[in-house]
Simulated scan of single mutants.
Amino acid sequence: MQLTILDRIDRPAEDVVALTLRGAHGPLAPWEPGAHVDLALPNWLTRQYSLCGDPRDRERYRIAVRHERLSRGGSDYIHRYLRPGRTLEVSLPRNTFPLVPAPSYLFLAGGIGITAILPMLRAAADAGASCSLVYAGHTYASMPFAGELRAAYGDRVTVVATGHDGRPDLAALAAGLAPETVVYCCGPTSLLDACEAVFPAERLHVERFRPRPRTFAPDTAFDVVCARSGRTVPVPAGESLLNALTHAGLPVPAGCREGVCGSCEVTVLEGEPEHRDDVGAAPGRMYACVSRSRSARLVLDL
């Protein structure tokens, strides 16, 4: 974890605060567009937020948080109680939504999903790539950084207030997509599902805040062999791998516990994982919070 000081709080839109975090002991860890951090709050909750500042600024991180009406305690605490000067711990940046090199990009953001997309647009423009952004939200007043984006990128940015203008015509965007264009999308589930229905899967990159509703085979029990510690941990059918390891005294860092943030990644040495995450685990990796095992025995580098 890195120790930071809450340098300032801005309000870039209705019900949204932007937090600028300054390194308490010098430069912060580097990051690339698409990265997020775990923010440890004083009320003992840990939440994940996309970095939406400038990766070239090693002195500060910027995140933005919408006040959710059905908050689980994270956004509510940030909006009600955090004040400048507070010391906060943040994780090292983690990137499960990296920007791949391409000559042309179409970025699509819905609401607070702009936080992940904003640094990507900046990086693409700085690299000289052809790029455009369609940014949708219910009202103009509810859309953070809309003015900042339009001032910086002009007609490359289209801002759509769905309550007034209706939803963006994704089918028309897909029909006019150049062969070399890569599409990045971040926002609510409805937007991501609509994008997955019209854009080619091999050119579409999405980041989800909530897992997709999916159905899996019934859970079965399996054993986990922890190669470094020499321990064998049984994982019953009714318990997650993450919880079984924690109860055995072998805790794995975890954030969302829903398979969308990537903080609980573990290395698989033997066995066949059953991936249930929405991140897309790399070969030889799995996410312990939701994923299980297809084989009776799984060997992990723990």
Rank of each mutant, 00 (worst) to 15 (best):
135 Y>F: 15
170 L>A: 08
97 F>I: 04
123 A>E: 12
83 R>A: 15
162 T>K: 14
97 F>S: 04
130 S>I: 01
87 T>K: 01
76 D>F: 01
87 T>F: 01
124 A>S: 09
82 L>W: 06
83 R>H: 09
78 I>T: 05
91 S>H: 00
160 V>C: 14
157 V>S: 04
171 A>S: 14
146 A>R: 15
167 R>K: 01
148 E>N: 05
122 R>T: 13
149 L>N: 10
144 P>T: 08
148 E>L: 13
97 F>R: 00
142 S>A: 15
77 Y>D: 05
148 E>M: 13
114 I>E: 12
158 T>I: 04
83 R>N: 04
116 A>V: 02
168 P>G: 12
161 A>G: 10
100 V>G: 04
107 F>K: 05
77 Y>G: 08
125 A>Q: 12
81 Y>C: 07
119 P>D: 06
99 L>E: 04
126 D>K: 00
140 Y>N: 11
156 R>T: 07
96 T>A: 03
121 L>I: 10
152 A>M: 04
93 P>I: 01
148 E>Q: 10
137 G>A: 15
74 G>M: 04
147 G>N: 10
85 G>P: 09
80 R>D: 11
118 L>W: 11
125 A>P: 02
145 F>P: 08
72 R>D: 05
127 A>M: 06
98 P>C: 11
117 I>R: 10
100 V>C: 03
106 L>V: 13
105 Y>V: 06
142 S>C: 12
88 L>P: 03
71 S>V: 09
135 Y>I: 09
140 Y>D: 15
151 A>W: 05
151 A>M: 06
149 L>T: 13
122 R>I: 07
109 A>H: 13
129 A>W: 01
88 L>C: 01
130 S>Q: 15
114 I>R: 07
106 L>S: 07
156 R>N: 09
150 R>C: 13
119 P>G: 02
79 H>C: 05
144 P>V: 13
95 N>G: 08
104 S>K: 13
142 S>E: 11
146 A>L: 11
142 S>F: 06
90 V>N: 02
102 A>K: 07
88 L>E: 01
98 P>W: 00
169 D>S: 11
156 R>K: 12
118 L>R: 15
99 L>V: 01
95 N>I: 09
79 H>A: 04
165 D>G: 06
93 P>T: 02
123 A>W: 00
93 P>K: 00
80 R>S: 12
98 P>R: 02
125 A>W: 10
153 Y>P: 04
128 G>T: 07
